[in-house]
Simulated assay, not measured.
Amino acid sequence: MSTLQQIHNWSLVHHPRWLVVIRVALGILLIYKGISFMFNSLQAHQLLYNTVFSSSADAIIIGITWAHLLGGFLIIIGLLTRWAVLLQMPILLAAIIIMANQYGIFASGADLPFTVIIFVLLVFFLVEGGGPLSLDNYFRHNPK
């Protein structure tokens, strides 16, 4: 049995039902952040202004917005959960690095603690997967 299959089997056996609530909340927060990027693109531009990404800030903001909206929806329904989480991880990691460099680690007003919590949850659900109450699990057991 492969390592990925062993991790998946372990996560199905050790997945409490209340983790579904956390997975759905994570998806909702990502959708909220995607909508926030959509309507507050000036704030995102200011965040990217003094970085290497300033020349292509518009394209990056559009990509982040759609990645958060699509990834959040997939995480909520539990479809392709690990892939959706992998899509989010580089975005959140870059956000943590940029915010830590611009505002400092303990700056008030920055979304750094919120972003770190979301990143930790993404790492958790990368390992854990969608769980027994997800479309991943449904399609795995009903291949028709």
Rank of each mutant, 00 (worst) to 15 (best):
R82F: 06
W83E: 05
N40D: 14
Y49E: 10
G34C: 02
L30R: 01
Y32F: 06
I75V: 15
T81S: 06
L30G: 00
G27C: 12
I31S: 07
F37D: 00
H45Q: 12
S41C: 02
G78K: 01
I75D: 08
L48V: 02
G72V: 11
F53E: 08
A57Y: 07
M38G: 03
L47Q: 10
S54R: 13
G78V: 02
S55R: 08
Q43L: 14
D58I: 12
I61T: 04
H68C: 13
Q46G: 14
L69F: 07
L74W: 03
I61E: 05
I31E: 04
S41G: 00
W83A: 12
G63T: 13
Y49L: 10
N50Y: 05
L70E: 10
L26K: 04
A59S: 11
S55V: 04
Q43N: 14
G27D: 09
Q46M: 15
S56F: 15
G71T: 10
F53Q: 07
L74V: 06
H45T: 08
D58K: 14
N50C: 00
G71Y: 04
I28F: 13
F37Q: 09
L79G: 04
L42P: 01
G63V: 09
T81V: 06
A84W: 02
F37W: 10
A44N: 03
M38E: 05
Q46I: 12
L70T: 14
L42S: 11
I31R: 10
S55L: 05
T81Q: 06
H68E: 12
A25L: 15
S56T: 14
H45W: 11
V52Y: 07
S56I: 15
I28P: 06
W83P: 05
I75C: 14
A57L: 09
S36K: 06
L70I: 15
S54T: 08
G72P: 09
I64V: 15
I75K: 14
S41V: 00
L74D: 01
L30M: 11
H68Y: 13
N40C: 12
L69G: 04
I77E: 01
F53G: 08
S56R: 10
Y32T: 11
D58T: 15
N40I: 08
M38T: 10
I76C: 08
L47R: 05
I28T: 09
I62W: 09
A84Y: 03
T81Y: 03
L48G: 03
L26D: 02
I35N: 00
G34L: 00
S54M: 07
S41Y: 05
I61R: 03
S56Y: 14
G72N: 09
L47P: 03
D58N: 13
I28D: 12
L42G: 12
F39A: 03
Y32P: 00
F53A: 15
F73T: 13
I61K: 05
L69C: 08
I62K: 11
I76H: 00
L48W: 07
H68Q: 13
W66P: 06
T65G: 05
A57R: 07
L48Q: 02
W66V: 11
S56Q: 15
L47N: 05
I76Y: 04
A59H: 09
F39D: 04
F53Y: 15
S54N: 12
G34H: 01
K33V: 05
Q43Y: 14
W83R: 07
S55N: 07
A59N: 10
Y49A: 14
Y49T: 07
M38S: 12
